[in-house]
Nucleic acid binder design. Structure first.
Lengths: 204, 204
DNA sequence: CTACTTTTGCTAACGCCGTTAGAAATTATT
DNA sequence: AATAATTTCTAACGGCGTTAGCAAAAGTAG
């Protein structure tokens, strides 16, 4: 009897419709205006049904958070795989990070910009380690530093900080009026400068 | 007759008590748990009184936002004034920025980490330009780039991004378990490395 | 087909929130 | 003392996350 299978399937359909409706709402009104009630309205079910699929609102955000890290890591890994030269890989990974942030602002804001992610909340994202290992393996190959050493963590931290700073400052305060240059070129120029000097630092 | 003067004074007292109560609440429960109702309760007035002093909740946050930029700029300017050598000034300004962020996490989170500050919301902070000019004058003195040129804006942007990235990544995901080194020293080491290479970039 | 059980989904409520209209109380002025 | 102006409050509106408890539907067994 395929009854329970069908039920299972229908459950997953509702779950997915919650997520896709939520995603639509977020793209319309932003994370701050997302509400369980609006989601319930959009999926044409009553509010408590949402709670049959997610423990609470935070669990929904957390799902998107994980998807964000997953998608970003995929993008980074792809960019890396397109190259063989290690330095070039690192450069392309940085650019891919940048591109991800600006092509997926909603994701990026949820991942880094939203309500005070505590230390723990981030360490509870399993996808985080996959993301970090994309970077760390490359750095390892360039600089020959052993995994899990203090030195390589320092480098990973630097690299990540550098790009994140660039991204978030530009998400929040993009340089506009002061330029006789395309802002996009402007920013990518900074990014590439950064990476160049970072790689130089790896080699010394 | 000093009646209207007294009234004025009392008005300001209430306004200040709103702000100081709010600040206390924020330090207890964070920005996300601050509410007008709690403030009203703390100042022992009814809710609408709060609206006689601030247009809405955002106006209260905005007040703290401006105070944050003011305080940070003061710290930066003081650090700068303690030195005469321009490169040393820039280095100390960066360290002062770092120290401000970690000694005033609430401020820093409001200024950069909270609910999606749009481009406009930041350009509406008059204190922002004072903060930027502390950096830009120093960079100007080191690199000799003219104010308001594309080049100096590029440098300001780089400098700010670099530090902000370091700060916010460390606020959110501090390196802990992987180190046989004091995290504070670890981070400041990265910071100083960053600044050194940044200054090198200014000179070439 | 009927009686019973399990699952599913709903209504309605609780206690918060920001915000505001309008009444009540207080204070100043004539 | 009576009137005008100001200050302050109560009470509400619509929204939120969350949950208890009931109604409806679907499945199961005789």
């Amino acid at each position: 009897m395929g009854i329970s299978e069908r039920k299972e399937r229908q459950r997953k359909e509702v779950r997915e419709s919650i997520l896709s409706s939520a995603w639509e709402l977020v793209n319309q009104d932003g994370w701050l205006n997302l509400s369980i009630r609006k989601i319930a309205d959009a999926i044409e079910y009553s509010v408590p049904v949402v709670y049959d699929h997610f423990e609470n609102k935070e669990a929904i955000l957390s799902e998107f958070n994980r998807r964000g890290f997953q998608l970003m890591t995929e993008n980074l890994a792809e960019a890396k795989a397109r190259q063989t030269n290690h330095k070039q890989q690192l450069e392309d990974v940085a650019v891919a990070y940048w591109d991800f942030a600006f092509q997926n602002k909603e994701y990026y804001q949820l991942m880094f910009g939203l309500g005070m992610p505590t230390c723990e909340s981030l360490t509870k994202v399993p996808e985080l380690s996959a993301f970090i290992s994309v970077i760390s393996t490359t750095i390892n190959q360039i600089a020959g530093l052993p995994q899990d050493s203090t030195e390589i963590w320092l480098k990973i931290h630097s690299f990540w900080s550098m790009i994140h700073g660039l991204v978030s400052i530009n998400l929040v305060a993009p340089p506009v009026s002061h330029l006789n240059m395309n802002p996009d070129e402007f920013n990518k120029a900074i990014l590439k400068d950064f990476i160049k000097s970072f790689i130089k630092g790896l080699e010394t």
